[in-house]
């Protein structure tokens, strides 16, 4: 539950985008400069970052590995958008621990120490008919470019967005620009309809033929979306966000079981057949460093002025 004063602060930040001038030259200037920042919700921040090479090469579904400072972790972040002309990429980060909080605390003019990518296989975009794009929480961010690409190629696009409450719902307006239909579900009913995302999805599946579902969000959400679409025999892809170190296939931290075989999310994914993923194993592996993450985060929060 969000405290009252937090909501007040959040209102002030909401949709107030800060900008700095886009650079003219690259000489003697730090790389990976943040050019714009926007708070999408109390805990979710959008950063537009200069990434000249990556912005040209990226496709929907791909991600980057980011390190904020020289003691920082390497963390994977899906590319939420890119601007080839301005040579920027957009990253959307939810404050959950030390690394994400550090990143969220950066301002326009600051730089990320390292960005590498684009990594992973791009989403296979094709015209199939009707596509249901399901996004839960901050998973709506990586869903955004994929949904747009499916629409642009000529599919009917229905988006189903889920969030715990109204404050945590992101990119609703942006999605509305191109979606043929949008269903919003909130856990507490503070916005859209009350209920889990699967309720909204099932409504669509009962109503009309659907040819493909895309699910991105928390592992538990993807698990239940997959169970649902399996019941209706709808091909479904899920994009996974596992723990990674290098992101290039070197370490295997991201391994998941798909169809009984071990796969590396970083090079074999991040998207897989949602009906074949071993979500329970993935959920456990996501908790590998739960204790350490808490220790690190407590220390970090204490170090803040």
């Amino acid at each position: 539950m969000i405290e009252k004063n937090a909501v007040a602060g959040h209102d002030k930040l909401h949709f107030k985008t800060q900008f700095v001038t886009v650079r003219q030259t690259w000489e003697d200037d730090p790389m990976n400069k943040i050019v714009a920042k926007e708070m999408l919700s109390e805990n979710v921040v959008k950063l537009v970052v200069e990434a000249p090479q990556i912005s040209q090469k990226q496709s929907p579904g791909q991600f980057v590995i980011v390190r904020t400072d020289d003691r920082g972790e390497r963390i994977p972040l899906t590319i939420a958008d890119a601007d080839k002309e301005k040579m920027t990429i957009t990253l959307i980060i939810q404050k959950v621990g030390t690394s994400s909080h550090k990143m969220a605390n950066l301002d326009p003019g600051d730089s990320l120490l390292d960005i590498s990518g684009p990594l992973g296989k791009p989403t296979h975009i094709e015209k199939v008919g009707t596509v249901v794009a399901c996004g839960g929480g901050v998973g709506i961010a990586p869903l955004y470019p994929i949904a747009r690409a499916f629409k642009e190629i000529g599919n009917k696009l229905i988006t189903v967005l889920g969030a715990r409450n109204r404050e945590l719902l992101i990119l609703e307006k942006e999605m509305a620009v191109f979606a043929d239909e949008m269903i919003v579900m909130t856990d507490d009913g503070s916005y859209g309809e009350k209920g889990l995302i699967t309720v909204g999805i099932e409504k669509v599946l009962l109503r009309e033929p659907v040819h493909l579902a895309v699910a991105i969000g928390p592992a538990v959400m993807m698990k239940f979306v997959a169970l649902l679409t399996k019941k209706y025999d709808i091909p479904t892809i899920a994009s996974l966000n596992t723990i990674m170190v290098d992101g290039t296939g070197m370490c295997g931290a991201c391994r998941v079981t798909v169809g009984g075989k071990t796969k590396f999310v970083c090079v074999d994914g991040p998207e897989f057949d949602a009906h074949e993923i071993d979500y329970d194993e993935m959920l456990k592996r996501l908790n590998t460093y739960k204790k350490e993450e808490q220790v690190s985060y407590d220390g970090y929060l204490k170090s803040l002025p």
Binding site: R71, E73, T98, V245, C251, E292, S296
Partner: peptide
């Protein structure tokens, strides 16, 4: 590879001074 990378490259032996556990 992961074990050594966490320690050598990411300095996990100095966690929580370094962020990688």
């Amino acid at each position: 590879n992961e074990y050594l990378t966490r320690v050598n490259l990411m300095k996990a032996y100095q966690f929580p001074h370094y962020d990688t556990p």
